[in-house]
Computed example of a mutant assay.
Amino acid sequence: MSNEERKAALTLWMEERHISIQALAEALGVSRPFASVMLNRETIPAKRHKQMLRLGFPAELLPPPYHKPEPFFPGLMGQETTASR
């Protein structure tokens, strides 16, 4: 299924269930523009993908998840980071 076909199917699925972009944004704890852009992308953050699956969205209608790499700060290598300091 192309991204355009997926978006059309997802839009129909949401309309049939009376799920607005605003309602989705509120359920995810994000802004309305972010929710809208996210649904139109080729991929979405794995965290948001998992949240949407929990809300009952069909996996085949969602953009595939991507895992954001953790930041790597070379200057912090080997340093102890504790709350007691």
Rank of each mutant, 00 (worst) to 15 (best):
M1I: 11
M1Q: 10
M1H: 07
N3Q: 10
N3V: 08
E4Q: 13
E5W: 01
E5S: 13
E5R: 11
E5G: 10
R6N: 04
K7C: 07
K7Q: 14
A8L: 07
A9G: 06
L10P: 01
L10D: 01
T11V: 05
T11R: 08
T11Q: 09
L12E: 14
W13K: 02
W13S: 03
M14Y: 00
E15L: 10
E15W: 02
E15T: 09
E15H: 05
R17D: 04
R17Q: 03
H18P: 03
I19Y: 00
I19N: 00
S20W: 00
I21M: 00
Q22S: 15
Q22K: 13
A23F: 06
A23C: 08
A23G: 11
A23E: 12
A23K: 12
A23V: 12
L24D: 00
A25C: 08
A25Q: 05
E26Y: 05
E26A: 06
E26N: 09
E26S: 09
E26P: 00
E26H: 06
E26C: 03
E26G: 03
A27M: 03
A27P: 04
A27K: 04
L28S: 02
L28I: 06
L28T: 03
L28V: 06
V30I: 15
V30R: 10
V30M: 10
V30T: 14
S31A: 11
P33T: 06
P33Y: 01
F34H: 09
F34L: 07
A35I: 01
A35W: 00
A35Q: 00
V37Q: 15
V37E: 15
M38P: 03
M38K: 01
M38F: 01
L39A: 00
L39V: 04
N40P: 03
R41C: 10
E42A: 13
E42Y: 07
T43M: 09
P45H: 15
K47H: 14
R48G: 03
R48I: 12
R48E: 13
R48T: 12
K50R: 14
K50C: 07
K50S: 13
M52Q: 06
M52K: 02
L53E: 11
L53W: 05
R54T: 11
L55T: 06
F57T: 15
F57G: 11
P58G: 01
P58M: 02
A59H: 05
A59G: 05
E60V: 08
E60H: 12
E60N: 11
L62P: 01
P64G: 12
P64N: 13
P64A: 15
P65F: 04
P65E: 09
P65M: 08
P65A: 08
Y66A: 08
Y66V: 14
K68R: 15
K68N: 14
E70S: 12
E70V: 07
P71Q: 05
F72Q: 14
F73D: 12
F73T: 08
F73R: 11
F73C: 09
P74K: 04
G75V: 10
G75K: 07
G75S: 13
G75W: 02
L76V: 09
M77T: 15
G78E: 02
G78S: 03
Q79M: 13
Q79S: 06
E80T: 07
E80I: 07
T81H: 13
T81R: 11
T81I: 15
T82M: 12
A83C: 09
A83G: 07
A83T: 09
S84N: 11
R85S: 08
